[in-house]
Design a protein around this nucleic acid. Structure first.
Lengths: 248, 248
DNA sequence: TCAAAAGTGTTGGAGCTACACCCATGG
DNA sequence: CCATGGGTGTAGCTCCAACACTTTTGA
């Protein structure tokens, strides 16, 4: 944390004694549209990287934490006011000198999962904001390719052992929709009967909405509805199918 | 990342246009001594929190990343020069206003695992540096209690699905020593035969040192020696015994 | 010859994969 | 009555926890 280091404890405090660092937040806002993972991007209007797409983000204000700044930016970029309850996951902090050619910028990156995808109002300042399919997003400005990859990896891993998947779903959802979240993020088909059993066998993951049902594909049996449960950690974890295939 | 936010793109760049943030690193340096988890602490000489113990850390220099700063501080505090190969794990960034009463400090926290515990030379600047048993460490200065707890939780979780445990061991170690790492960090006894089988069944986790053996407790059969293998992710993971016990 | 620590074998049960099958609804 | 998606049942297999047992050393 704070200054117990040599420079700090050596003398009196001077706010400008050290190199001033700009501190920003960057957001990897993910959602599912039409069965594909999408990410919210903004188009840069100026150099460097003018015309390139980038993750939304911005500077910390003097009296807010990185989390607060991330929520503020999220509200500005998406036009959502329901930002309060959304899951924000701090990824890591990117601090390499030179990652922004103009000045020294240290950036705290967050991942955020949205259930439905409202079209972003080009709010705030961004020239244009848009949902872009994950696979079509690159190349991004700055080191955002790496941040985006880190976000996907983290989210994929967290689906295994936390209830995070429900953050991609609306308040009430079917198990089929929840399964689609896993299949889309992991890029793997799952066995429906077994998926259902694992989910329901995990206490506190989902809670049934009594009597409620909804048609999904226009046809077929209406599916029972569930709400996100109180559990954060899953026991046992829902492991994705083994990455190692058998030899060719 | 960098300024595509309103303030940044609105006009020309001025390094002092925004609140200057001090950026620091904090280190949770963990090791095993006498079968117990220990953490490296420094005693603060000045207010605030004078006389209290804190995690080592310090300011970022203008031309270094947070990782570089963490390695530099680690070398200064411990007197180790072998810092190059050590595992540094970025935990998260703590940015709440007011976490340092003197000024606005944003701190990037790291966890670091050491095999043997050389007595820290009170190097650099710290009044005193010392290994303290994890359970006797609190209360620490600033929000370091929370950082330390986050470090332990992260390390415990990573033992399950990565080869991180070998970072607590010397270059050559016995399976009994490796098992002690798990038992100490998790606080759970493990079945030795099953532990051995799981480790050896995981390709790339450890590699035998041909013909080498070492006596451990002074008595008993000498144990074969192993080196850390190339694997970073463990398949299957080595799950800790279920946290939920059966009902009383 | 005993204690201590490493290492091997084995068995019974839990859990899971891969299916086949039934139910409800719209066209 | 057929296609579509939700939901249930189950056989067979894999894996693993638990524990008995053997081996090698120092005292």
């Amino acid at each position: 944390m704070a200054g117990h280091g040599a420079a700090a404890d050596a003398g009196d405090y001077d706010k400008h004694a050290h190199e001033p660092f700009a501190v920003t937040v960057d957001l990897a806002v993910l959602t599912l549209r039409a069965g594909a993972l999408h990410v919210l991007l903004v188009e840069r209007g100026q150099e460097p990287y003018a015309g390139r797409w980038a993750l939304p983000g911005g500077f910390l204000l003097p009296e807010e934490s990185a989390e607060s700044a991330a929520r503020r930016e999220l509200a500005e970029e998406t036009g959502l006011d329901e930002v309060a309850g959304l899951h924000l996951e701090q990824l890591r902090t990117y601090s390499e000198p030179g990652r922004d050619p103009r000045m020294r910028v240290v950036s705290v990156a967050f991942a955020c999962l949205l259930p439905e995808a409202p079209e972003p109002r080009g709010g705030g300042d961004a020239a244009e904001a848009r949902w872009v399919p994950y696979d079509a997003a690159r190349p991004l400005a700055f080191d955002h390719d790496r941040i985006l990859a880190d976000a996907r990896e983290r989210v994929g891993a967290k689906l295994e052992y936390t209830g995070l998947a429900t953050a991609f779903c609306p308040a009430e959802f079917t198990l089929g929709e929840l399964q689609q979240v896993y299949e889309t993020v992991w890029g793997t088909p799952l066995d429906r009967p077994n998926f259902r059993r694992k989910i329901l066998a995990t206490p506190g993951f989902v809670e049934p909405v009594p009597g409620a049902a909804r048609l999904t594909g226009g046809r077929g049996k209406p599916a029972a509805l569930y709400r996100a449960g109180p559990a954060t950690a899953l026991h046992p974890p829902l492991l994705r199918p083994s990455r190692e295939g058998r030899p060719a």
